[in-house]
């Protein structure tokens, strides 16, 4: 049986963009569970410092990340030289989802792979137009 996905929780400590009650409730549930997890203060700050810890967080099996928009999380890891693998990453958005939804998604063994992938049609078309 494959290992259960790892859990990574982002506390978004240096801005008020994730509702404080949502992140507190999600963290509380994680603390009440018996699950092992990695909690980071602020993924943005880690990406800015090109923290090598992001590499280890991105590597090694399936991972569920409770943070914000998948497009932003993918970009942050990429910018830090620690690409997330689309085939084993789920990003759960604490900016838009309720604490119950986030906690249920973290607890579920199912993976909802949702990293945006590849060039969008619009971007590809724009790129092609520029080349001609």
């Amino acid at each position: 049986m494959p290992d259960a996905p790892r859990i990574l929780y982002c506390h978004c400590a240096y801005a008020q963009v994730v509702p404080p009650d949502v992140k507190a409730a999600v963290l509380r549930r994680l603390c009440e569970s018996g699950a092992a997890f990695d909690a980071v203060a602020d993924l943005c700050e880690m990406a800015a410092r090109r923290d090598p810890a992001l590499k280890r967080l991105a590597e090694g099996g399936a991972v569920k990340i409770a943070a914000c928009f998948p497009r932003a999380v993918k970009g942050l890891f990429h910018q830090a030289g620690a690409d997330l693998a689309a085939e084993r990453t789920e990003v759960i958005n604490m900016r838009t989802q309720s604490a119950e939804e986030v906690s249920a998604a973290l607890a579920s063994a199912d993976m909802n792979l949702n990293l945006p992938q590849g060039k969008t049609e619009a971007a590809a078309a724009a790129a092609a137009a520029r080349k001609t």
């Binding site: 400590a13 569970s33 203060a41």
Partner: peptide, 26 residues
Amino acid sequence: FAALTELLERGYTVTRTGTGTVAPAD
């Protein structure tokens, strides 16, 4: 919960051991 919240607010990365895997050491 209180300890984790305090450490996260201060900017630390915290790994809680338990059932399941966490990221390897760097």
